[in-house]
């Protein structure tokens, strides 16, 4: 009975995508920018977690928290330094800058510590659980648990805290929010902080689950998480979660069927199909251009 493990694999991969996708969708909802560097923040999270666990001998939870704290600061810095000036420039300029930031992070990381991969320490050994006759990895359950906790936390922040309300207000109408006395700049900083922290946590989880991390690891999961966000409807928080899960399940399913080589292409095919036939995604609003 290997289907349960496959399902759990899919959900684990999906929750990693979902955590990254949340950052994309929140940032896009507010500043209408594909933060290309988001995948690299995820990568940085993985490395910070790694050094936390190995060099600083921190426990698992402290390492995740450390990764989240540092990546949120990095996220805010990126916005401050690179994106803020471009808020009213053409989208091409902002996107090009984001690509630049992404490559800058990747190659600075390589410059500092070299391109070689690292192997994550094995925290949970080979613990296996036997449920319903199926064997599943214990770490898969831990990933799931952490993802759920983080997503619930995010929901709570967005719906019940002052900053969350400000985020929703700014994404709905930045100008009106400004008139209501909301500091748009600060709200955007918070959005980057939250999104980056989630990506940082996703990085640590990724390292734990897939063990191998390297400086260019952010590119593909980053793109796929973006696709998950589009699938769920860009700007929608539940959409990003569902989109991530769906994408994770589909990919796992495709590799389980023996097409593991084309796995990476599937996401892009999904993207193009979604954009063509359902551009608003699963939960997005249909926005039409004003003429």
């Amino acid at each position: 009975m290997d289907w349960l493990q496959q399902l759990l694999n899919g959900i684990s991969l999906g929750s990693i995508y979902a955590l990254i996708a949340l950052g994309y969708t929140m940032v896009y909802g507010i500043v209408k920018l594909i933060n290309f560097a988001h995948g690299d923040v995820f990568m940085l999270g993985a490395f910070i977690g790694f050094y936390g666990l190995t060099a600083l001998h921190l426990g698992f939870i402290p390492s995740i928290l450390l990764a989240m704290a540092i990546t949120s600061i990095i996220g805010v810095l990126i916005e401050r330094v690179a994106y803020r000036r471009l808020r009213n420039s053409p989208r091409i300029a902002a996107l090009t800058t984001a690509i630049g930031v992404s490559l800058f992070i990747e190659y600075t990381t390589i410059y500092i510590r070299g391109p070689q991969p690292e192997a994550y320490p094995d925290l949970f050994g080979n613990d296996k659980l036997h449920i319903l006759g199926a064997t599943i990895r214990a770490d898969a359950l831990i990933i799931l648990l952490i993802s759920i906790v983080l997503m619930l936390l995010l929901q709570w922040i967005v719906h019940y805290t002052k900053i969350g309300k400000a985020m929703r207000a700014v994404s709905y109408d930045a100008e009106a929010a400004r008139l209501m006395g909301i500091s748009v700049d600060r709200t955007i900083s918070w959005t980057f902080a939250l999104g980056s922290a989630l990506a940082g946590a996703a990085g640590v989880i990724f390292g734990l689950y897939y063990t191998k991390i390297e400086p260019l690891m952010g590119l593909i999961p980053g793109l796929k998480a973006f696709i998950a966000a589009v699938l769920g409807g860009i700007g929608s928080i539940p959409g990003a979660m569902i989109g991530g899960l769906v994408l994770g399940l589909v990919e796992t399913w495709v590799s389980a069927l023996g097409f593991s080589l084309v796995r990476d292409a599937v996401a892009f095919v999904i993207l193009i199909l979604i954009l063509l036939f359902m551009p608003q995604g699963l939960f997005g609003k249909n926005v039409r251009e004003k003429v």
């Binding site: 594909i34 989208r91 996107l95 793109l223 696709i227 892009f268 993207l271 954009l275 551009p279």
Partner: peptide, 10 residues
């Protein structure tokens, strides 16, 4: 704009 960018990248 950015959607086209991602699709062409894909």
């Amino acid at each position: 704009g950015d959607y086209l960018a991602i699709a062409t990248l894909g």
